[in-house]
């Protein structure tokens, strides 16, 4: 039974990923102007359009791109003629590092805030207010605030995050702090806002209350009666949250001059470079879908355990 559910979830994830690629293509298509126009600098660009194959109907271009992808070829940039895979590979490590650091902060912070919001009845009001306020502040504003305080007033950290040439951002770890916090804190607040309710429901469940009343130690109650029920929602929320965080790298990387995929995506949309947009957007979507898939699997497993 579980195997069937897992298989169904996998099929669903692949179908959604396909739908995302169509949506990304269509969205870029709907924007006025195209890469040929960008390359010509405003001069009529029929000749360039023909060379790039942009004179073909949209469905054909999508089909050609998809067929290439099936062969493992992500295509060439419409603006720079460079292979998309190489352009993305140059920037992938920087974004993975930043996202890793941001997640390392965001995941524990989300759980801590969610737990605090879900359990502590006396302090619930202030915690929820804090979570709501942080989640409501736009990432760009939060980042600017961090720069003003930690780079401006206190001068503890650099205001821009220039990655060393041919090197890893970890060679200069101080450049990661502000962008990682700018990504992590608002995302964690959002995640905690969503998860807080699930925690509150779980800890107030009848079997939990009765276990506590029987005198079962608190830690054991938490480990045996609460956490298993929270595993699936936690993974689901974290998956959605990481998606939001990857989306936010567009703003945060641009503000900090951090040469990662987010900065590339903003720039690629600006010049209507569809293959590059796809190559950045799809892996990000895949990360979210993989997380949701994992949550589905977890849910299937925990339900079976509960049923047993």
């Amino acid at each position: 039974m579980t195997a069937v559910r897992v298989f169904a979830a996998a099929v669903r994830a692949v179908a959604v990923l396909f739908a995302v690629s169509v949506a990304v293509f269509a969205a870029t298509e709907l924007l006025p102007s195209d890469a040929a126009q960008v390359r010509s600098g405003g001069v009529p660009a029929a000749e360039i359009r023909e060379r790039l194959g942009l004179d073909r109907p949209a469905w054909q271009r999508y089909g050609i791109w998809l067929a290439g992808l099936a062969r493992g070829d992500a295509g060439s940039s419409l603006v720079t003629d460079r292979p998309v895979a190489r352009t993305v590979a140059e920037r992938l490590p920087a974004t993975l590092t930043l996202a890793g650091c941001a997640l390392a902060v965001a995941v524990p912070l989300t759980l801590a805030l969610a737990w605090a919001a879900g359990t502590a009845s006396r302090r619930r009001g202030p915690v929820i207010t804090l979570v709501t306020v942080l989640a409501a502040v736009p990432q760009a504003v939060f980042a600017a605030g961090l720069v003003a305080v930690f780079a401006g007033m206190l001068a503890w950290l650099p205001p821009v995050s220039l990655v060393p040439a041919d090197g890893s951002p970890l060679e200069r770890p101080e450049i990661l702090v502000l962008p990682a916090l700018a990504l992590a804190v608002p995302s964690a607040a959002f995640g905690a806002g969503v998860l807080g309710g699930a925690v509150a429901d779980a800890v107030r469940a009848p079997h939990v209350t009765s276990a506590a009343e029987r005198g079962v130690p608190r830690v054991r109650v938490a480990a045996r009666h609460v956490l298993p029920y929270l595993a699936a929602p936690v993974v689901r929320v974290l998956a959605v949250m990481s998606g939001g965080m990857l989306a936010a790298t567009t703003v945060v990387e641009t503000l900090f001059g951090y040469s990662g995929l987010g900065e590339l995506l903003v720039s690629a949309i600006g010049v209507r470079d569809v293959p590059v947009v796809q190559a950045v957007a799809l892996p990000a979507a895949a990360v979210v879908l993989a997380g949701l898939f994992a949550a589905d699997v977890l849910a299937a497993l925990t339900e079976r355990r509960r049923a047993a």
Partner: peptide, 25 residues
């Protein structure tokens, strides 16, 4: 609520420890 509040505190402390791992200092 019959549950421990300490996990939150522990996670908070862990967070403080994690930051230097990602830089700082």
């Amino acid at each position: 609520t019959p549950l421990p509040r300490r996990p939150a505190a522990a996670l908070g402390a862990g967070l403080v420890l994690l930051l230097p791992a990602c830089g700082g200092g």
